[in-house]
Simulated assay, not measured.
Amino acid sequence: MSAQQHAAPDPTRLHIVTGKGGTGKTTVAAALALALAAEGRRTLLVEVEGRGGIAQLFETAPLPYEERRIAVVPGGGEVHALAIDPELALLDYLEMFYKLGRAGRALKKLGAVDFATTIAPGLRDVLLTGKACEAVRRKDKAGWRVYDAVVMDAPPTGRITRFLNVNDEVAGLARFGPIYNQAQAVMRVLKSAETAVHLVTLLEEMPVQETVDGVAELRAAGLPVGAVVVNMLRPVVLDDEAVRAVAEDRRADVAKALSQAGLGGARRGGHAERLVDPLLEQAREHAERVALERRGRAEIAALGLPVHELGLLGDGVDLGGLYRLAESLRTQGVRG
Rank of each mutant, 00 (worst) to 15 (best):
M1Q: 07
S2F: 14
A3T: 11
Q4H: 11
A7W: 01
T12E: 06
R13I: 04
L14K: 05
I16P: 08
V17K: 03
G19H: 03
G21S: 06
G24M: 04
A29K: 01
A30T: 13
A33G: 12
A35Y: 03
R41K: 15
T43M: 04
L45S: 00
E49Y: 06
G53E: 15
Q56P: 11
Q56Y: 03
L57A: 08
Y65E: 12
E66K: 03
E67W: 01
A89V: 11
L91K: 10
Y93L: 13
L94V: 08
L94K: 01
L94H: 00
E95R: 01
M96R: 09
Y98P: 09
G101I: 10
R102N: 13
R102G: 11
R102S: 12
A103I: 09
R105K: 13
A106Q: 11
A106Y: 07
L107V: 07
L110G: 15
G111L: 09
F115E: 07
A120F: 13
P121Q: 11
G122P: 06
L123H: 05
D125F: 09
V126A: 05
L128S: 04
L128N: 03
T129W: 11
A132F: 01
C133L: 02
E134M: 06
V136R: 07
R137V: 08
R138Q: 14
A142M: 04
G143N: 13
W144Q: 11
D148F: 10
A149E: 01
A149L: 00
A154N: 08
P155G: 10
P156S: 06
P156T: 06
T157S: 09
G158K: 06
R159Q: 15
R162E: 14
F163G: 08
L164Y: 11
V166I: 15
D168M: 07
D168K: 09
P178R: 00
P178A: 05
A183K: 01
V186D: 06
V186I: 08
M187V: 07
K191N: 05
A193D: 10
E194S: 14
E194L: 08
L199Y: 02
V200T: 12
T201I: 13
E204K: 10
E204I: 14
E205D: 14
A220E: 11
L223Y: 02
L223E: 02
G226W: 00
V230R: 00
N231P: 14
P235F: 01
V237Q: 00
V237Y: 00
R244N: 12
E248C: 08
R251Q: 05
K256L: 09
L258N: 00
Q260S: 14
Q260Y: 02
L263S: 00
G264T: 01
G265W: 00
R267M: 08
R268Y: 02
G269N: 03
R274D: 02
D277G: 08
L279A: 02
E281D: 09
A287F: 03
V290A: 11
V290K: 01
E293S: 12
R295S: 14
G296E: 01
R297N: 13
A298F: 04
L305G: 04
H308D: 07
H308M: 15
L310I: 13
L310G: 07
G311Y: 02
D315L: 15
D318C: 12
D318N: 15
L319Y: 12
L319W: 07
G321P: 07
G321H: 00
L325H: 01
